[in-house]
């Protein structure tokens, strides 16, 4: 108990826990729309592109002689991730390149660009590790402020416009026929996904960001019947695994990002295994009201 109080009393841990809680809350909101659109890997694509943004921010910072050198890494990631996500969306909309190939181009271009730029900036790939795998223990007050602001924006758009974003993700053709601003809503989804990636970067790292967006949704849709319930359940699961995973690293020397993601995958496995046992129902006729139209001679 004392140890728990010690953890909560530690200012460094307080900031880290708050950041983890916010990320756990926000990431599954965007993830729900991505799963709905069958774009589960979009977060990964944007995450890779964000690495180029980190390196670009670093390069600009070192050219300007800023201390620390990576002061512009997060703003760089935000700018480049948003541009990358919007480009992916526009490519998808035109349908010229399949979403699959567009994402592949983003993956490889993003990683290669990041490594190339960081070496131009006089750094090494090792400098990128904190962004690839997360570094929540170094969350500063400024970082936290940015996380709070971006999380609020993600929640306002993702939850506030839920019916409209659902309509567009569910049936784009119908959304057009309803005169909805389809492109604006699609771009909004892409921008919010990019912001989620950059917010989650400090907690789980760019390589595992997508897991935090998708895995809680994968768990929730095993048990939920509605879109709204799937989203709220995924948010709850996201918060629980983020806070629990991070707390574990206070006592055990583990990577926070990896612990959180392994925990989430573990929850998925348990729910997937237990569900058939709990929901064991007798199979029933799905159309009991349909009259018998064929008479069989006895």
């Amino acid at each position: 108990m004392d140890e728990l109080a010690g953890m909560v009393g530690d200012p460094l841990m307080q900031r880290a826990l708050l950041a983890a809680l916010l990320v756990g809350l926000a990431a599954p909101v965007v993830g729900t729309y991505l799963v709905q659109r069958r774009l589960s890997l979009l977060g990964d694509g944007v995450g890779h592109v964000a690495l180029t943004g980190v390196a670009l921010g670093w390069l600009v910072g070192s050219v300007m002689g800023l201390v620390p050198q990576d002061a512009l890494a997060v703003p760089g990631a935000i700018v480049v991730a948003v541009i990358g996500a919007v480009v992916i969306e526009l490519v998808r909309e035109r349908g010229r390149t399949s979403g699959d190939v567009a994402l592949a181009l983003m993956f490889y271009g993003g990683i290669a660009g990041g490594v190339l730029l960081i070496s131009i900036a006089g750094g090494t790939s090792a400098n990128l590790m904190a962004y690839l795998f997360g570094s929540i223990s170094t969350v500063s007050r400024g970082d936290l402020g940015l996380t709070v602001a971006l999380t609020a924006l993600i929640l306002v758009v993702g939850v506030g416009l839920r019916t409209a974003l659902f309509a567009v993700s569910h049936d784009e053709e119908f959304a057009h026929a309803a005169g909805l601003p389809v492109r604006a809503l699609n771009v909004a989804t892409a921008v919010v996904a990019a912001l989620t990636v950059t917010v989650s970067m400090r907690v789980v790292g760019l390589l595992l960001v997508s897991a935090l967006m998708i895995v809680p949704v994968a768990v929730a849709q095993l048990v939920a019947a509605s879109f709204a319930r799937t989203m709220s359940l995924a948010m709850a699961i996201g918060v629980v695994v983020c806070v629990t995973g991070l707390s574990l690293t206070y006592w055990y020397d583990l990577s926070p990002g990896a612990t959180i993601v392994v925990l989430a995958v573990g929850v998925y496995t348990v729910v997937a295994l237990v569900r058939p046992l709990v929901q064991r129902r007798r199979p029933v006729d799905p159309h009991p009201q349909v009259p018998d139209d064929v008479r069989v001679a006895a």
Binding site: T32, Q36, R37, L161, T163, F166, F174, A178, L185
Partner: peptide, 25 residues
């Protein structure tokens, strides 16, 4: 009418109430 994430019949029909600039039911 089914897609990736589960949605109820009510939720699908609710999306039909949106149009033009009306983005919330």
């Amino acid at each position: 009418a089914a897609t990736g994430v589960p949605a109820t019949a009510g939720e699908v029909v609710t999306s039909g109430l949106l149009h033009g600039r009306r983005l919330r039911p």
